[in-house]
Design a protein around this nucleic acid. Structure first.
Lengths: 237, 237
DNA sequence: ACAGCCGATTGACTCAGATCAAATTTGAGT
DNA sequence: ACTCAAATTTGATCTGAGTCAATCGGCTGT
């Protein structure tokens, strides 16, 4: 991991030119509210590998991902890691009841977030039920995804896990970049393994197996889905 | 599974004598609101094994568990099952964005729920941000639990899974019945296995192993924690 | 009390995925 | 272009948990 180089933009950012304005929590605010909201957040840049927050840290901020990809994970005392999700632009991070983060988050490649100090943000929500409702929607969506992932972790084979991951990841990218059979994988094999509850070797072997079967092609920084239908068949099982 | 015998109380239930009034969603309402809220819900009884709602069913109601235990689960097309959680009194079920339930729920032993028709409930929330906030809190708590469970499913050994389950289950019962080293397990071994991502045989063997080590005692309808510290050591690993 | 059933336990054996150990490829810095 | 370190792939072997197959035990209903 490189030395920490967090860049905070001097000032004067505008929600107007924010890529996720329509999708993120902000989508619940009208123009006037957005103007006020703007002063609460500040854009912060993180470079590859940097940690945005750690599990057990006291929560001082919430984060809205604007650009890039983050890995969200929990560690066991002996170092085993489970990635509980990947965050993409539009995702909102940091909500918890305990006052401490319940997972760690770090940047995979360059990341830009919109950071909100906890207290003023909480105050801002107080009399904006729309915003609260939006946050609640995001939590409910995450919960549904979390349950799907439990099924994957607890009941699927390695082949099914990998196939499901590829399709699910592609699906998430569709919303951001449009449909494509070329699927960029900015995360490492280790990240994928820790997300799927496998080892790096099993992930690698499964990829090569899929490639030999002519179902995918392993390309620079990702894979290409040669036969999406076959991958879907593998995932469904 | 027995023939369906759903009992709906004729009427006139009162939140006043509701065991979970202080803990559940209702805790966010003042006396006047509670009086109004009362008319939205009706108590419904389910007997052992009955299904309260199924995955993919259109969501017509939300449920507040009053008494008993429910298993919440998802099925793969080929019948593999993953239990995503057990619901206890105070838990609120049924929230989703898709308009369909994203898991199935059935009764383990006799269950009483407070059932709310979706539309009036949703309307009632509209201008009660307190209630929405409470629901959001419950969702965030569930999300945190879901992430913990992902770690268990993806990265823990069978022994660790079983030990963690016993402690976690006991912990949840503490809130309801007070601390005790006697842990009732109303769910079957198959349920435990499907919750932990194991087979019934592995769960059974792990129990007997723990018993032979003198760490637990397997008793009728549950276990007794003879050496909680050792179980904690096993769980932490 | 007894028969029959269903859930739980136990044992023998197998196998999917982990572990251990090299190559091989990639890529960042000089 | 060249070097070195890190990431990935590949191979050989091992093992924890699954599978298959009997029992065993505890209720239920007669």
């Amino acid at each position: 991991m490189k030395p920490s180089v967090v860049t905070i933009e001097p000032n004067g950012h505008f929600c107007d030119d924010c890529a996720v304005r329509g999708a993120a929590v902000c989508s619940s605010l009208d123009a006037a509210e957005l103007r006020e909201f703007e002063h609460l957040g500040r854009r912060v840049h993180f470079s590859s590998g940097e940690t945005v927050f750690s599990e057990e840290d006291i929560t001082t901020s919430f984060y809205n991902v604007l650009e890039g990809v983050m890995r969200l994970y929990k560690l066991l005392p002996d170092g085993r890691r489970q990635i509980v999700g990947f965050a993409l632009p539009g995702d909102f991070l940091g909500m918890n009841l305990s006052g401490r983060h319940n997972f760690s988050a770090d940047a995979i490649g360059a990341v830009t977030v919109c950071q909100f100090a906890k207290a003023p943000f909480t105050r801002f929500i107080e009399d904006r039920p729309q915003l609260l409702r939006r946050i609640n929607e995001l939590a409910i969506r995450e919960l549904s995804q979390a349950r799907d992932h439990m099924v994957l972790l607890g009941r699927r084979s390695a082949d099914e896990k990998v196939a499901t991951f590829l399709l699910g990841w592609r699906e998430r990218l569709v919303a951001l970049k449009g449909l494509s059979d070329t699927v960029p994988l900015p995360m490492s094999r280790q990240d994928i393994a820790d997300y799927l509850g496998l080892t790096i070797e099993t992930v690698s072997r499964t990829f090569t197996k899929l490639e030999r079967q002519g179902v995918i092609e392993i390309i620079q920084g990702g894979i290409s889905l040669l036969d999406p239908a076959r991958v879907e068949a593998m995932a469904a099982a």
